[in-house]
Design a protein around this nucleic acid. Sequence first.
DNA 1: CGCTGATCATTAGCTTGCTATCGATTTGGA
DNA 2: TCCAAATCGATAGCAAGCTAATGATCAGCG
Lengths: 149, 149
Amino acid sequence: MTEVLRLLTRAQKLLRAAADEAMSRHGVRVGQNLVLEVLWETDGLTPGELAARLQVTTPTVVNTATRMEAAGLLVRRRDPADGRLVRLHLTPKARAAEQPIAEARRLLAEHATATLTDEERRHLHSALKKIIERMTASTPPPGPGEDAE
Amino acid sequence: MTEVLRLLTRAQKLLRAAADEAMSRHGVRVGQNLVLEVLWETDGLTPGELAARLQVTTPTVVNTATRMEAAGLLVRRRDPADGRLVRLHLTPKARAAEQPIAEARRLLAEHATATLTDEERRHLHSALKKIIERMTASTPPPGPGEDAE
DNA sequence: CGCTGATCATTAGCTTGCTATCGATTTGGA
DNA sequence: TCCAAATCGATAGCAAGCTAATGATCAGCG
């Protein structure tokens, strides 16, 4: 029963490692790729907005943004209307990486699921969605003394 | 297509967070739990052996072991026959945590997959195994210029 | 018997998550 | 108008991965 959790962890780890290797060939680490995906679509978001979209905490985005700034992928600009806000803007370098990285991601997804039939892919998709829904909705964490003993 | 990867990442993250919270109630963090699972079965393994079983690098085990030693969960003992080796032995405290933690893990797995039918669970299981097999076997990483362009 | 190469664990340093805290800015109420 | 509360981003510090480099010990060969 607990076996599924292990498989899920292992699969995710393998995929993440492969993604990181692929992205790194384009000068982008796997975590930065997620930020890029959102900013390619909507440039100039704040760290907080980005964090909400990525379902990650703000400090995570701030730290990643700092590394990306150092790598020349984005710049921070203070919002003129509200001094608390910082807006993240992609550089031409980041825009130039869009096509190759999107392609790399597509290839990886194809490769990983190449041995699955369309039906299996659909089953996997729906099973994962059910798990996610289950873990996000309400989620009374299964504390001890629910049905135990 | 790339959607499945996102779902897999998200599901794994949710599960890991829930597991960490559950384990923490027993004084064990989620990464340490993996070490415990192996040592409960086979005490006295070396960091290298443990790393191989967990499919993790040796430094990861070393660092986790250091934290666990500080937490009083295990002790390091030099192998008398081979001075290069270090053997990790669980303390009574770690043994006492076995039942509650195993139970917590079981409950979590049950909770997470509660909305799946048995058939869906089997499908999920086999799909994940296929992905893992695909990613481990040979794995010519999908570099650019395979079928692109 | 001694030295060289292999085999371990450890350390250093990085990425990516997290929580908790701090500092600055804005806003709303008195 | 001004001060307190709310809202942000940034920082500090931890866990858990990784790779690369260090250091200790062993084994085998000359």
